[in-house]
Computed example of a mutant assay.
Amino acid sequence: MIWYTVLVLAVGAERLAELAVSRRNARWSLARGAVEHGRGHYPAMVALHTALLVACLAEAHYAHRPFLPALGWPMLAAVVLAQGLRWWCVTALGPRWNTKVLVVPGLPLVTSGPYRLPGLRHPNYLAVAAEGVALPLVHTAWLTAVAFTLLNAWLLAVRIRCENAALAPAGTAT
């Protein structure tokens, strides 16, 4: 359980690093006239992602979930791959990447990195969904995996509609 706690705390630290990048990028975007969209759903996103980390540890500890190597190791690999995909998205979007929906008028859509792959319009959200299943299942916290997946599906439906509408003037929404 100690190693799982370290993993979840490392993911939490990664989230804090994302927020630092996001704040820096928000300043860049706002300085260029960015318009924010979807302010209403953002607090729910923050709460859900925070709850995921807390619930992973709580369920694993209080429900005495074991580490099952046949499940845990592949799920750990999925968590690592999800992080890689997330940071590939951050790198491809550069200063435009943000945890909020900030759109700088006049900038074209990004079509490099994972955004160039056909059929993968929202690669960052694929990473979020994969991590939301895999991180809890590293230590068989299946209730957390199911609850996060259901709530995240609802939230992503809202977020993707918002993002697509905000990016529509720039071309086909990513």
Rank of each mutant, 00 (worst) to 15 (best):
V21F: 09
H139E: 08
N25W: 00
V35W: 02
W73A: 07
R121F: 02
A58Y: 03
V79H: 01
H37M: 11
A166Q: 06
A153C: 04
V8M: 10
V79G: 06
W142D: 12
E18G: 10
A127C: 10
L143C: 04
A34V: 01
E36W: 02
G119R: 12
C89S: 01
F67D: 07
H64V: 11
S29R: 05
L53N: 04
R121Q: 07
A141I: 03
G40F: 05
C162M: 15
T111P: 08
W28T: 14
L120G: 12
Y42L: 13
N25A: 01
P69Q: 04
A134S: 08
V138T: 08
V110P: 11
G132L: 04
L81N: 10
W142L: 11
P108I: 12
G12Y: 02
L102G: 00
V101H: 11
C162Y: 15
W73I: 11
H64G: 13
W142P: 08
V80R: 05
H122V: 02
V79R: 00
P114T: 15
T5W: 11
Y125W: 15
E36I: 03
A26D: 08
G84P: 01
C89F: 02
T144L: 03
V11R: 06
S29N: 00
A127K: 05
G40R: 12
P136H: 14
A173F: 06
A63F: 15
T5Q: 05
A77I: 10
N25L: 00
A77S: 07
P169V: 14
E36V: 07
T149A: 15
V21L: 12
A127T: 08
M75V: 07
V133T: 02
T172M: 15
A134C: 10
A31R: 12
L151C: 14
W3C: 13
E163T: 13
H139K: 08
A173I: 02
C162K: 13
V128D: 01
V101F: 10
A44G: 04
A141Y: 06
A157D: 08
H41A: 10
L68Q: 13
A82P: 00
L71G: 10
N124W: 02
R15P: 00
V80P: 06
C89K: 01
L81P: 04
G40L: 12
N124Y: 03
G40C: 02
N152R: 09
V46K: 03
T99S: 14
L143I: 07
P74D: 01
A26Q: 04
V6E: 05
V133Y: 03
T99I: 14
E18D: 13
E59A: 14
A44L: 15
N164P: 01
A147P: 00
L135M: 08
G38Q: 09
R27P: 00
A92R: 05
A58M: 06
W97N: 00
Y4S: 09
P43F: 12
R39K: 09
V35I: 14
W3V: 13
A134R: 06
L85Q: 05
